[in-house]
């Protein structure tokens, strides 16, 4: 069976996979990183979003072999070594942007990508539009939108609140 080598949350891992093995299966089943979730089978829900070489990717829609040699960050790798949370994790907690927690890892990883790729600022409408790849059944998104807006100035080192 082919071998895949990845750097996951800063650690190198080499695992045997089948050609059809998905990146999310490697993360969950081979590396025990169960924070990344699978909520659908049609690439619709975004519960499985991780960062591959810095970009948000639905890990249920990428073959493990496609990620060979890549650097992957999962929800487990966001907080600092001393446990300090990423500003987006902090914003989700502070704004009650999660209830059952199942969509949360993918939502947080997408939200970070959204904020990082929009250094010029984000309106509420833009945040809502950019979150359309992630489903949440609990919150009605209201507080998720608030959390993303709240994390923007922190992540960009600015005081002002981005969203209106």
């Amino acid at each position: 069976m082919p071998q895949v080598t990845l750097t996951v949350n800063g650690k190198t891992a080499s695992v045997e996979v089948e050609g059809r093995t998905l990146l999310v299966e490697v993360l969950r089943d081979k590396l025990g990183l169960t924070g990344t979730h699978v909520g659908c089978d049609t690439s619709q829900c975004g519960a499985c979003v991780v960062h591959v070489d810095g970009k948000a990717v639905k890990s249920c829609t990428m073959l493990a072999l496609q990620a060979n040699g890549s650097s992957v960050t999962t929800i487990e790798g966001l907080a600092a070594a001393d446990g300090t949370l990423h500003p987006m994790q902090e914003a989700f907690r502070e704004n009650h942007a999660l209830q059952c927690g199942f969509c949360t890892p993918g939502m947080v990883m997408s939200a970070i990508d959204i904020v990082t790729t929009h250094p010029q600022g984000l309106t509420e409408a833009e945040i809502r539009h950019l979150l359309e790849g992630n489903l949440c059944r609990c919150t009605g998104y209201h507080n998720i939108v608030k959390a993303v807006a709240a994390a923007w100035p922190v992540m960009h080192g600015k005081e002002a609140v981005a969203a209106e």
């Binding site: 990183l33 929800i75 966001l78």
Partner: peptide, 14 residues
Amino acid sequence: DLRFISGRGHYVDD
């Protein structure tokens, strides 16, 4: 929240 936002929830499939 702490366990959910840091990927340490324990769902059945985990």
